[in-house]
Every structure is written in structure tokens, then in C-alpha cells.
């Protein structure tokens, strides 16, 4: 059984149905990309997984259906770290306090040690550790968001447009590190991206969403070579 199994996922904003009932799977330790145009339902999918929109269907994590659970419980119980669109930085507290918040639900004694783990991936954050997070650059804030997610010691990371608003060179660096984290820590990742090339490069599988439904799914290299996908999403 997959680590994360979604069956017939529907999501609602008020009366409006945004997702129309599709299936999706994420295996332990793998990266899966979720692609699609604006409004296809990528962000909504991630938000549904951690209980931030009203959802229907079944979202099974480690064998337990989490639909209807509160965000806080899902995060605490199933170690799902969500790196939201726009990074969700706590701008008024320091970099290190942001990291500390990432470990808020942990009760073990190794939190201090994990700061170094994050700094190992993102050395720049160490230089900025006591700086107010709001004063960090966009790239640094994105790294902080990923670092904060790492502090949970997550089983699953949900990444919403990590490349958004970043310079291409920083984006590439970030995706390299994401790949590295995946290998070294064994964290499964669900990556929502507009920049399909980058996402597919580190992913094993990929889903293509169109207006609230899965239009295509399969191994990442297969999706990458699909004529239609290349025209519509990859631009060559």
C-alpha cells in the first residue's frame, strides 16, 4: 500500500466543487510531480491533503483516512510538512525561530541537532539564523520554508510551487537540494510546479491535472516525452 493514497478526491470552496474526484498515489520515499495550468487544482489538492479545504472522497495516509481531521492533527500525527505557496514565512520572528516552529509538534530531544541538519543543506540560513525572517531574500525564504518543513522530520513533504518568484539559478540549486534531501532523508515529496521540466527531472512519477481532474499520469520520463505535454507545458 502506498504511503499516501487518494481515492475519488473532491474539494469544495463553499458551494463550488474544485476537484471532481480523482485518484493519486505517492509511494514511500519517492518524488511525485503534480503539473497543470493555473486553476487546474494543484494547490487545492495539496490543501485538501492537509485538511485546509473541505474535501470529499478518501485521503489515506499510512492506512488512515485523514479527511475531516484538523490540519494540526494531520501534521502532528502523520508528519506531513506543507511548504505552502508564498512560503508561509513567519516574518516577524528570526530564522532560527522559524525552524523551531517547524519542530513544534515534536517532543524528542534532538531538535537542537536538527538545526545543523538544515544548515547542512542550506548553509546560508546559518549565516542568517538570528535575522528577522522577513528581511531574508525570496530565495532564502524559500530555503527557510523547506528547512522549516525538514524540522518536522517529515514522512511526506508537500511543496507548492517552490520555484515561484525565484531566479532560475536559485531554482536549480533548490531543486538539486530537494533531490538530495529525498535521497538522504528518504522523504516522500509531492511537488506542485509550473516549471514542469525541473519537477519532472527529480520525480519518479507525475500527474497532469486539468480543471480538477487527472488528465494523464505515469512515470516522469514518459510524461516528459509525451508529445501533448511537451507542447502544452514544457514549451518545446
Amino acid at each position: 500500500m502506498a504511503l499516501l493514497e487518494i481515492k475519488g478526491l473532491k474539494a469544495y470552496y463553499g458551494q463550488i466543487e474544485a476537484l471532481h474526484g480523482f485518484d493519486l498515489e505517492l509511494e514511500e520515499g519517492e518524488i511525485t510531480a503534480v503539473l497543470g495550468a493555473n486553476g487546474a487544482g494543484k494547490t487545492t489538492t495539496l490543501r485538501a491533503i492537509c485538511g485546509m479545504v473541505k474535501a470529499g472522497g478518501a485521503i489515506t495516509v499510512e492506512g488512515e483516512n485523514v479527511v475531516g481531521m484538523s490540519t494540526e492533527s494531520i501534521v502532528a500525527k502523520h508528519k506531513i510538512a506543507h511548504v505552502p505557496e508564498g512560503r508561509g514565512t513567519f516574518v516577524r520572528v528570526s530564522t532560527e525561530e522559524n525552524l523551531r516552529l517547524g519542530a513544534f509538534t515534536r517532543r524528542d530531544r534532538e531538535i537542537e541537532k536538527d538545526y545543523e541538519r538544515v544548515y547542512h543543506y542550506f548553509p546560508r540560513l546559518k549565516e542568517r539564523r538570528s535575522q528577522q525572517a522577513g528581511t531574508l531574500s525570496g530565495g532564502e525564504q524559500q530555503m527557510l520554508a523547506v528547512g522549516r518543513a525538514l524540522m518536522l522530520r517529515p514522512k511526506i513533504m508537500l511543496l507548492d510551487e517552490p520555484s515561484f518568484g525565484l531566479a532560475p539559478i536559485i531554482t536549480e540549486e533548490l531543486f538539486d537540494i530537494l533531490g538530495q534531501i529525498n535521497k538522504e532523508e528518504g522523504v516522500a515529496m509531492l511537488v506542485v510546479e509550473q516549471n514542469a521540466n525541473l519537477a519532472l527531472a527529480i520525480s519518479k512519477n507525475a500527474y497532469l491535472l486539468e480543471t480538477g481532474n487527472v488528465a494523464m499520469m505515469g512515470p516522469a520520463d514518459q510524461i516528459m516525452n509525451d508529445e501533448q505535454v511537451r507542447k502544452s507545458y514544457l514549451g518545446y
Binding site: M52, E72, F90, R92, L101, F104, R148, L152
Partner: peptide, 24 residues
Amino acid sequence: TPIGLAMRAAAASPESARLVGVRV
């Protein structure tokens, strides 16, 4: 204290706080 930090976080950005497991 972690609780104090979480309270500041919950007040400033409730949604992000939920995402790190803070009961807002």
C-alpha cells in the same frame, strides 16, 4: 518558550501556524 513562540506565530499568521501543527 516554544509555546510563547507558537502564540506569536499563531497571532501573526494563523494559516502557516496550522501547517506546522500549532493549534491556533
